[in-house]
Amino acid sequence: MSSNTSIEWCDHTFNPWTGCTKVSPGCDHCYAEGWAKRSGQVQWGPQAARRRTSSANWNLPRRWNAQAEAFRAQHGRRQRVFCASLADVFDNAVEREWRDDLATLILNTPGLDWLLLTKRIGNAGAMLGEMFLNGPPDNLWLGATICNPDEADRDITKLLRVPARVRFLSMEPLLAHIDLRLKCPNWSDDIVMDPETGAYECCRACDYTGIGNDIDWVIVGGESGPGARPMHPDWARSLRNQCEAAGVPFLFKQWGDWRAPQPGEEFDTSLGMAQRVPAFIVAHDGSVHCFHNDQASAGSTPMLRVGKKSAGRELDGRTHDEFPS
């Protein structure tokens, strides 16, 4: 029953096929593309064929499912399987027959919770309808990757249109401040957010307070790897506060390669990449500077590039490992 992944929010990863195409700013430094280039197992991009994985790999979920009762007795919960960490289930370049085979596998492993995370949430409704004629099963969780406000405005409503027992957001890499407010029919634009809690005071007619009625889980993380972009701490804090106010489970996955300086830690942003530990000023809009200026004054913070392991995953002195029930 050992895990085959180091990803904090799942027990296993399963790739029915590999290969993908960049469709989002979050894809700019895709770790899966890097893996593909290093391994030589699959080409990447719009003209490249997707590669189905082996029969032995396809048998792994059945093995995990056979251990479902023992796992639940030991851990008090079900196993979570992240499906397609090196691909996208709802990729147009994937053959429908492969998705049908995946649907059969999901139906035949009811002891597992299948987490389908996509950057193509607009395809999910139609493709899931083809995969599951009676609707998605209860062991399917559907997630959308959201990196910036444009994606939030465009894709969260698409996610909410698709039936799923659990809907979640993976906000990694988080590239900007994001307001997860989903407007109710009686919303008033003059309502403001409480800066202390991240909560909105909605109209008294409906008591709607934000995402809690629609989104079941939020995962947040900074970027790691070559070219990693720093995440402003206030972006993560705001999402934590919004989730807390709305009663939504919040998981802080990682800072990524960058973190704020620790008390008493020496750094010099004017040297930028020249010093042993690179240091920069990150403005609230995400722009990066070597020194304070008009653009990088209000709300800016120094960030040091120390690597994913050293940066850790504590937010304001604690880990956040909340999951939907």
Rank of each mutant, 00 (worst) to 15 (best):
T157H: 11
H75I: 02
F90Q: 00
L128N: 12
L116H: 01
L105Q: 15
S85E: 01
R96T: 13
I106G: 09
F168H: 09
A152F: 09
E201I: 14
F82L: 13
L115S: 02
W114Q: 05
A68S: 14
I121D: 00
A205V: 15
D100V: 08
A176C: 08
L174S: 10
L180D: 01
G122A: 10
R165A: 14
L140Y: 08
L116C: 08
A126P: 05
R72P: 06
L160H: 06
D150S: 12
E130I: 12
P163H: 12
A124M: 07
D153H: 09
D194W: 13
R96V: 10
N186T: 08
G111V: 09
I146C: 05
Q67S: 07
D113Y: 02
R120I: 03
D189A: 08
V192C: 13
A124H: 07
T109P: 14
N134W: 14
N134T: 11
A93I: 00
D190G: 06
I106M: 15
P149G: 02
D153E: 13
S85W: 03
E97L: 06
A205P: 12
W98L: 10
D155I: 15
A176Y: 00
Q67E: 14
E172C: 07
D194H: 10
C83D: 05
H177C: 02
W187I: 01
L174F: 09
